[in-house]
Design a protein around this nucleic acid. Structure first.
Ligand SMILES: [Mn+2]
Ligand SMILES: [Mn+2]
Ligand SMILES: [Zn+2]
Ligand SMILES: [Zn+2]
Lengths: 139, 139
DNA sequence: AATGCAATGCAACGGCGTTGCAAAACAAAT
DNA sequence: ATTTGTTTTGCAACGCCGTTGCATTGCATT
């Protein structure tokens, strides 16, 4: 869906460049989250790594992708399927990391549970990261 | 409690060294989690930063401290108050990061909720990181 | 086609975490 | 207390990650 990719960029008032088209298409095709290294690898020497960093940051700012907290503290990104916009992310779903294949999934339909905190604590965001074996590896 | 510190080290079959005593005492005194930089700062030029890295790793291996997943993907450590031992951590409590003062807390009495996952996913660990304003800043 | 502005590539930098190795410190035995 | 073997430490070096400044290129608009 080359068309679809361009539409997403236009809708977010981003100019259409090769790197943005390529990187965004990688996210659309992928079913799991992508790290900077994944993108660098999958796009060969096509783009400078700085461009990848900047493109990822732009996409996050625009609400096109969101960062995912991980237990191995690496930075991963995935498409926002929620109604995210510039400066307002609403990706309140559970994330899953497979210990076997390393894939990180957005479980978009599993919303994070409410956590009761001690008096005096004000909650603004809750992140849930589940580790284990994914349905793809579990057969 | 100089005595207490040494006891913990002995109980874990670790030789008693200046760096281990110092670093462990920092954790015992602190009410929040510590990053490598915090320890480096609070111990001045007393120890090489490599020693701090190795000491932290040793403590994690022994089940004395545990790592804490954070949303800003920095590495933080805190004392295990649960019955953790070498190779077997059981720190299934919620962690809280204050957006205001930056402190990361172990909410030892708040256990992580069970999360229902789609069929085929096997859960081995669940991490919950809550962000917001802590009870110390909220006054 | 020309213009103004935004994005990219390149080079350099600082910070983080790791590794190898020699020196120092520790624990156990004499 | 001294010796001995083992563990820990400090130092140096390295690679990786993410950032920044700046000149060049590419994009969108007229
Ligand atoms: Mn997600
Ligand atoms: Mn904890
Ligand atoms: Zn898997
Ligand atoms: Zn606070």
């Amino acid at each position: 869906m080359e068309k679809n990719i361009v539409d997403i960029l236009k809708k977010n008032q981003l100019s259409i460049t090769d790197s943005r088209k390529k990187i965004l298409s990688l996210f659309v095709q992928s079913n799991g989250a992508l790290a900077h290294a994944d993108i660098e690898h999958q796009s060969g020497t096509e783009f400078d790594r700085v461009t990848i960093y900047r493109t990822l940051q732009t996409f996050v700012d625009k609400g096109i992708i969101h960062t995912i907290p991980t237990t191995d503290n690496s930075v991963r990104y995935a498409l926002c399927k929620d109604d995210c916009s510039a400066g307002h992310h609403h990706d309140d779903h559970v994330h899953f990391m497979c210990d076997n294949c390393g894939t990180t999934y957005c479980l978009d339909h599993i919303t994070v549970p409410a956590v009761k905190l001690p008096k005096g604590f004000k909650v603004t965001q809750t992140d849930v990261v589940v580790s284990g074996v994914c349905n793809n590896c579990n057969n």
